[in-house]
Design a binder for these strands. Sequence first.
DNA 1: TAACAAAGTGGAATCGGTTACACTCGAACC
DNA 2: GGTTCGAGTGTAACCGATTCCACTTTGTTA
Lengths: 344, 344
Amino acid sequence: MTKPATIRDVAAAAGVSIAVVSRVLNDGSGPVSAGARQRVLQAMQDLSYRPRVAARELKSGPTSTIGLLLADVTNPFFARLADSVVREARSRGVQVVLMTTQEDPRLEEEALATLASRRVSGVIATPTATNAGAWQHLGDLQTRVVFVDRYLDSVPLADVVSIDNERSAREATEHLLELGHRRIGFVSGPLSTTTGRSRTDGHLATLAAHGIEPESELLRNIPFRGDQGADAMGSLLERDDPPTAIILANTAQAVSGLRRLRQAGVKVPSELSVVVFDDNPWTELFAPALTIMRQPTELLAAHSVDLALSQQPDATAGRTLMVEAEFVVRSSTAAPTAARVPSN
Amino acid sequence: MTKPATIRDVAAAAGVSIAVVSRVLNDGSGPVSAGARQRVLQAMQDLSYRPRVAARELKSGPTSTIGLLLADVTNPFFARLADSVVREARSRGVQVVLMTTQEDPRLEEEALATLASRRVSGVIATPTATNAGAWQHLGDLQTRVVFVDRYLDSVPLADVVSIDNERSAREATEHLLELGHRRIGFVSGPLSTTTGRSRTDGHLATLAAHGIEPESELLRNIPFRGDQGADAMGSLLERDDPPTAIILANTAQAVSGLRRLRQAGVKVPSELSVVVFDDNPWTELFAPALTIMRQPTELLAAHSVDLALSQQPDATAGRTLMVEAEFVVRSSTAAPTAARVPSN
DNA sequence: TAACAAAGTGGAATCGGTTACACTCGAACC
DNA sequence: GGTTCGAGTGTAACCGATTCCACTTTGTTA
């Protein structure tokens, strides 16, 4: 109905000056008599007064807020990450503004502009595109930039928190090689992302180390969002010599890929071993329970918030933190059946 | 390094007054000569200037922003909702500030306070607790409040967008009754939420309409978050006369309930028919594919954004919008096997 | 008793934008 | 040739908080 109360209204109602009200508001910023404090609190109550952040932010720096810019909340991995970041930030009294880019570079640029003009103290992000200029600019604005999960080489000032994707891919590949697989399908995210590239690199390096000729036909780089997981899986299965094992190194596309597998009636693990780079509640529900790579979301979140709130010791270079992923072997991987092992 | 540029710096660099810069900033707010505009734009570029929202918000009302207060981003249903809301809002040029309550009333209250002092134009929320006072207060601040999915009776001024939960529960129950089930387990969210209550009501009403004595032992109301789905499922299975069908009317707990089912080695649907109130990619992956109730997330989001941005015609009462849910029958429901149908 | 410290208070400047209003200037009109 | 108009510009007030500083009122100490 009426206009919201301001600090002046409260001061008037309590019969004091605005300075006193402000001191009550920011406890410890100056002396206030018990009587005055009481009357001010009462007045605030009566007028249901809420200080406007806009005014506060204008005068003092931004109230401690960090931006969280995720590629896709729909992706359970990112959703869990968001959950952890919010919890972590809260425990330090920091607000989180969450924004989604939906893997769209234009959206990302917009969100970045918003974050910049909001002068948040830090931004935690899973960068989609090389909006290098925008990122750099954010850094210039003395906003801490932390890339989590993926990162951009072109933005050296940003901190990075991630699992060792190359090593994880190596571990997954080793596991399959030890079981006796030689033709391994590898579905990953776009090579334009560090996750896609590192995982692919790790996979190829491991094959090479075991003297296996990598077939580029067995590698599929698909977008994180969308339904291409099914197609990728389909085309791999239709080959004359289909792979005996497959690594789904793309968090978001695992579901659509697995659906295709189910439709095709392929038996897991007897006909095909499956490893998924993801750790969702349902991976255990799938029959058979899936062998997965688990990312320590809590830890990623904790480190990210840490870095986002810390002052940069050196303005030009970011810090890099690697955390360990956990490889969980369940029932979806097994030795290839004899019939399918080729003569070599 | 140096302090970020202000409008005055830009004005000085371009050799004009701040008023001119402001006019360039807010195109259409006044005349600016082509030359001046050019110089201002150049200066903004050079100084990499970004207007501070805090200052803008202080003078004019809040820039068009809506708050989205979700109970749990980890819950895929809410994640999809968030995704849709962001997309929808974006298409109208509105920013979304997403916050999570994690089903914690205290967190919710905090988030509400933040939203209030941020003076967003509207808030879309899935209320957790009866923070009735805080909600009411938000409404007093001429902030539109829209409850989506769940709502609170105690906050009449809020708009509501939801599926018809009672009707949906009725539909699910009818389906099972038609198949011949008589003992139906019903796992829902807390009765303190409207979703939990409506779904339970619909279920019980349907039983009554068919002359079936409802057994309170077959109803389990558990929190949305956490792992109690497994326990609820377990205790139902351990009964002397276990249900022949079960409805998991709790989006978030379906996974943990199903996991228990899998562990117990119960065959679906021959030993137990299952209906889930949720529509996740993995419900199709589960073997057998699950019969589900699908909520039209896009529609819920579109209406919510609509209402959040609209001016309230009447300040005292909110509007209610029901959208239709779609019941998808797949393979997890079937007639109970004869052996299990009791004598009645 | 004078001097001084500390507690309590209020006035006024400040943050960085927006905007009402006054002003200049040249073109158009009668 | 004076009036009117509108385009283009600048000055200054304002939004609602924080905060520095000066001031008064006490209590304490030499």
